[in-house]
Design a protein around this nucleic acid. Sequence first.
DNA 1: TTGACGCCCATGTAGTCCCATGATAGCCCA
DNA 2: TGGGCTATCATGGGACTACATGGGCGTCAA
Lengths: 163, 163
Amino acid sequence: MDRFVSHYVLRLDAKGRVSVPASFRAVLARDGFDGLYCYPALDRPALDAGGYALLSEIDALTAGFQPYSDQREQFALALYGTSETLKIDGEGRVVLTDTLKDHAGITDTVTFVGLGHKFRIWEPGRFRTELAEATEKVRAFKQELGTRMMAAAAVPKPLGARE
Amino acid sequence: MDRFVSHYVLRLDAKGRVSVPASFRAVLARDGFDGLYCYPALDRPALDAGGYALLSEIDALTAGFQPYSDQREQFALALYGTSETLKIDGEGRVVLTDTLKDHAGITDTVTFVGLGHKFRIWEPGRFRTELAEATEKVRAFKQELGTRMMAAAAVPKPLGARE
DNA sequence: TTGACGCCCATGTAGTCCCATGATAGCCCA
DNA sequence: TGGGCTATCATGGGACTACATGGGCGTCAA
């Protein structure tokens, strides 16, 4: 598998270390990135983490702005400036910096969540809330999509016909 | 055969393992996915499962949104975050996680139902009610379609004409 | 000197692998 | 056409391994 999938709840030990889930480590190894690229999520109390795949997403984003533009510099600052490259020890664990932990409200337990090309690190309680909200939104979206399809199908009409 | 069809009732053993129906395994083997991609269905107490064919369906869904957009992240969270890639052992069995079993209300027996490019896993009792409801809906829909067609035929009007 | 960090080893548990058994259905041969 | 044989599949259980977690020790830098 080449993407981050599923979620795991893991504990920090007395030294502040957390095991990165083995399946995530496997993805990182394949990605080729040595360590863990990590920064506070822009608009959530969570951390974004990953390898080269994540880095190239950031590149693509900043590249979208004019060179030397304020926006570009601000993005670069917010993303690159707050990033850390965490070392992964022999047992596959990392130590989160205080800045990172503060941003996410992490104390002694974390939830790792795969998002495909990257993954997020949450304080477990906050994660549950976030997941519930996201699930609700997706469900609503799917339902809307479904009823639209049904409406189109109910009246025998060529697909894509205008209302 | 390259799609999941028919349905099977199988039992979990003491270790919580279930055999994936052999015909489904054959489809997965052809699909090339190593393991079983599985997640809780959004709007039913059931599990969706499959291989790359299912994954690409999810890809298509999330790829439609801008990177870093709220919607995309929520979709990724709800879809990738709740997914699991289950290992298939030498005998073609998988172990469902507690989260998955809870969502579907599975205890010691499951029903596998083929849906073409993916399949669903149900608690057998719930599957029966679902099937009954679905059958009823389809019957009603078909009937309605029939009368509409009849009406359309009575008044000679090109097929697909607007009401 | 002391704390932080990197590196190493220890342990319990849960997941994985491997082999065994029983049932079934398809096939071959008389 | 009927009976037996065999391949396939679901199921069961024991052994082993990988993983998360905990702790010790040396090193380097304030």
